[in-house]
Amino acid sequence: MSAYDVVLKARANGRATAQDYINGIFTDFVELHGDRRFADDSAVIAGIARLGDKSVTVIGLEKGSDVKDRAARNFGSAQPEGYRKALRQMKQAEKFGRPVICFVDTSGAYCGIGAEERGQGQAIAENLWTMMTLGVPVISVIIGEGGSGGALALAVADEVWMLENSIYSVISPEGCASILWKDSTKAPDAAECLKLTSRELYRLGVVEKVITEKLGQQQIYDTLSRLFSETITRIDSEGKEKMLEARYERFRKFGSYTETVV
């Protein structure tokens, strides 16, 4: 399967969305709306739920179920309000000692006049900054598309996992192809170059786990449920200081460069 085949799978209509994962994994989900600043952005769903017998905060970038729902949710492209809603829920999670679980599925942050006027960049920047020292465990799972900064804004976590046929990239293959070769139809070539598949990203150390999709969807939910519980228990047992230190180092390590004088 080529990298672009994976891109198409990650984007396919009918692929399970954040809401499906929430329904499949948790019980007693209480959705909480709004950023208390401007609006409620339905590209982000957020709330409290139970994982087994433990309360957790759940946040997801939601693409929507049918045509109408998808349009209403801007196909999972969040406005600044969406990121601020997520941030509000994360801060509450910290206050009440709840772990945070994020589901990432977006082609990227919303691109438009209003989003810029209301500080799209600032909203994402604040999430990255805050999540880096959020005092509760954070796990992010990329379930479909992980599009650039709009995805990273929910993926500064202790562990980041990916579904086998999901992607995570700094730019869309189409965008990359049109900049590089002035030809967006060369997206399949760009997809290869960008190393955006779960296999490549695991190799680069960008994700800790890849969840196989050879299982049925119910088995994926069961697997994730078990892995969430195990991972949260392990992180909790190590203590907050160690958790934050490990989170810092998790991102600190990325980068390749040389310092030898040639």
Binding site: M132, S148, V206, F254, G255
Partner: peptide, 19 residues
């Protein structure tokens, strides 16, 4: 972000934010 470095350039955003 510099697309020629793929996802690693995206990770720089988080790395710097931490510092």
């Amino acid at each position: 972000a510099r697309m020629q470095e793929g996802i690693i350039s995206l990770m720089q955003m988080a790395k710097v934010s931490g510092a």
